[in-house]
Simulated assay, not measured.
Amino acid sequence: MKKLILIAIISSSFLTLSFSLYYMFTIYQSDLGIASRAEPMLSEHAERIVIISQEQGSFMMNEIQKGARTAADAHQIKIDFWGVYRSNLDELIKQIDIAIASKASGIIVEGVDHPEFDRMVKKATAKGIPVITINSDAPDSLRKSYVGSDHYQEGIIMGEYIATQLNGRGTVGVVKSMTSPGTDELRLKGLGEIFGKYPGIKLVFASADNETLQPKIQTNDILNHYPKVDAFISLPADSGESIVQAAKSRSRMKDYPIFIFDDSPQTVMLINNGLVQAGLSQHYEEMGEMSVNLMKRWLDAIQLPLDNSYFTPISIVTSTGEEETAFENHSK
Rank of each mutant, 00 (worst) to 15 (best):
S281K: 08
G200T: 09
R297Y: 08
N88W: 00
N210Y: 14
S319F: 07
E160Q: 15
V50W: 04
S141G: 06
D230N: 10
Q218P: 08
P236W: 02
L213D: 04
H225D: 01
A206I: 00
D90S: 12
Y28W: 12
N224Q: 15
Y152F: 09
H45C: 10
S43D: 13
S177D: 05
I34N: 09
A326G: 15
H225T: 03
K94E: 05
Q65F: 03
E154H: 07
S136R: 13
L270Y: 05
I316H: 06
A247L: 12
I64M: 11
I9D: 01
T219V: 04
T70W: 12
V268S: 11
A246H: 14
H151K: 08
Y310K: 06
I34F: 06
S102D: 02
G279Y: 11
I64C: 05
P313V: 00
G279K: 12
L213M: 11
F327N: 14
P199G: 02
S291E: 01
T70A: 12
Y22C: 14
L304N: 09
E324D: 12
V174E: 01
P257S: 07
K202P: 01
Q95E: 07
L299T: 07
A206E: 00
E193Q: 14
A138R: 14
A104P: 03
Q214S: 11
Q29S: 15
K78R: 15
I27F: 11
T133V: 01
F117G: 05
I233Q: 05
F195M: 11
G67D: 00
Q303H: 13
S251G: 07
E289Q: 14
R48S: 03
I194C: 06
G190H: 01
F14D: 06
T219N: 04
A206C: 00
Q153D: 09
G274V: 01
M24L: 14
A99H: 03
